[in-house]
Amino acid sequence: MGELHTETGGHLPDVRLAYETWGTLDADGANAVLVLHALTGDAHVASHRADPSAGWWEELVGPGRAVDTDRWFVVAPNMLGGCDGSTGPSSPAPDGAPWGSRFPFVTLRDAVETERRLAEHLGVTAWQAVIGGSMGGARALEWAVTHPEMVRGVAVLASTACSSAEQIAWAQAQTQAVRLDPDWAGGDYHPGPGPVVGLGIARRIAHTTYRSAAELEGRFGRAAQGAENPFGTVAGPRAGRYQVESYLDHQAAKLVDRFDAGSYVTLTEALMSHDVGRGRGGVEAALAGYPGRAFVAAVDSDRLYFPAESERLARLLPGEVPVHTIASPIGHDGFLTEYAQVAEELKAALEL
């Protein structure tokens, strides 16, 4: 993708983006759909011949699905700053050593710029739709506002036009958990293993916000792990643990095994900076200039990206944009697990 001068004055002399594609691009380059991942996602949205494993939005992309790869050329990039093939803190800098602490602060607008270059590289002239949930939805909005001439339709699931104070607060706790791990070493711990304890704590915090209180209570309550008594005595040492603790430990271990702590901090802080109205006269003015189709969905039990925030986003987009509700007891992650509830509505709204 060449060199990149970031929004805040940083510099990357040579940026690489990992990506996957499905379907065939038409001669005019206009039958393309861009699908954008959430915070710790990657480019593997759906299975394909080269990688038959199920993707993270398997129900969305494929032959005969809502985004029909027999008709559409689908592109899914790994975001700038990530650790699944795109340039990030664990990537080698020009001197051959990992970027580490030298990796610049990047924003979602920087990510969109690299994705625009990817579109140019692939010969894409217009996106029939840019689709994303959570951080992917924030990037989708940045695409629509930054390059409205290229985006015929935008779909934003479980996301907002700007990060709220509460979302920033939860994110700050996570980045601090990583940075306060002694093995963070100022960000220069590569090749590792690095701050795995801090990253695990960050994931526990994040996953709690991704799930609803009702789901955690219904699944685990105060139950003990196995046959152990997790309570001990009031005055004595605690024995055993709760089932919900084991669940969070499992989620932390899964992420630590596959994700770089530096990328986690980089992407989290990029999402903290999300504000489509920055430098554009505010959110209302920025969204008013988007002329394309729009689809907005919220998860009814989401306690990280509240449905009311989706309703505000829909009101500020031009035209009559309804908010489609995903009914799920699990919380924010419902946009991934219960996507099929709104697949047909998204297809119709974006003329897919």
Score class of each variant (00 low, 15 high):
residue 170 W to E: 12
residue 189 Y to D: 03
residue 21 T to M: 07
residue 220 F to K: 06
residue 252 A to S: 15
residue 299 V to H: 01
residue 217 E to Y: 08
residue 90 S to R: 11
residue 37 H to A: 09
residue 215 E to R: 08
residue 271 L to P: 04
residue 139 R to Q: 14
residue 217 E to W: 09
residue 113 E to A: 10
residue 55 G to K: 01
residue 223 A to T: 13
residue 108 L to Q: 03
residue 25 L to H: 00
residue 304 L to W: 10
residue 311 E to K: 11
residue 203 R to E: 05
residue 127 W to M: 04
residue 172 Q to H: 11
residue 177 A to G: 10
residue 182 P to Q: 06
residue 144 A to V: 07
residue 166 E to L: 15
residue 302 D to F: 06
residue 235 A to E: 13
residue 148 P to K: 06
residue 63 P to H: 02
residue 185 A to E: 14
residue 17 L to S: 07
residue 38 A to M: 09
residue 219 R to W: 09
residue 153 G to A: 15
residue 57 W to F: 06
residue 195 P to Y: 11
residue 168 I to C: 13
residue 56 W to E: 05
residue 122 L to R: 09
residue 329 P to W: 05
residue 249 D to K: 13
residue 44 H to F: 00
residue 72 W to Q: 12
residue 27 A to Q: 09
residue 323 V to T: 11
residue 90 S to A: 14
residue 59 E to F: 00
residue 324 H to V: 01
residue 344 E to K: 12
residue 9 G to R: 07
residue 99 W to F: 06
residue 325 T to N: 01
residue 262 G to Q: 12
residue 278 R to H: 13
residue 137 G to M: 02
residue 63 P to I: 02
residue 318 P to G: 10
residue 322 P to G: 10
residue 12 L to F: 01
residue 346 L to N: 01
residue 106 V to F: 03
residue 286 A to W: 03
residue 295 F to G: 01
residue 192 G to F: 10
residue 233 T to V: 11
residue 324 H to R: 10
residue 295 F to H: 02
residue 125 T to S: 14
residue 173 A to K: 09
residue 66 A to T: 09
residue 49 R to V: 07
residue 316 L to A: 05
residue 120 E to I: 07
residue 247 Y to C: 12
residue 50 A to L: 10
residue 131 I to Q: 06
residue 5 H to G: 01
residue 35 V to S: 00
residue 214 A to I: 03
residue 216 L to N: 09
residue 314 A to S: 04
residue 282 G to E: 05
residue 130 V to H: 12
residue 79 M to R: 03
residue 174 Q to H: 11
residue 112 V to P: 01
residue 13 P to N: 08
residue 79 M to K: 00
residue 302 D to Q: 09
residue 265 V to A: 14
residue 180 L to V: 13
residue 81 G to M: 05
residue 293 R to T: 08
residue 142 E to A: 12
residue 31 N to S: 04
residue 131 I to L: 13
residue 351 E to F: 05
residue 284 E to F: 04
residue 25 L to A: 02
residue 351 E to P: 00
residue 322 P to K: 11
residue 140 A to M: 11
residue 319 G to C: 02
residue 209 T to I: 05
residue 307 P to Y: 03
residue 209 T to K: 14
residue 25 L to F: 01
residue 277 G to L: 11
residue 333 D to W: 09
residue 47 S to F: 00
residue 352 L to K: 00
residue 227 A to D: 14
residue 166 E to A: 15
residue 143 W to H: 15
residue 139 R to M: 13
residue 134 S to W: 03
residue 135 M to S: 10
residue 110 D to F: 04
residue 145 V to C: 07
residue 270 A to N: 08
residue 71 R to K: 12
residue 285 A to Q: 15
residue 249 D to L: 15
residue 340 A to R: 15
residue 39 L to A: 00
residue 24 T to Q: 11
residue 106 V to Q: 02
residue 253 A to G: 11
residue 27 A to G: 03
residue 162 C to D: 02
residue 108 L to N: 05
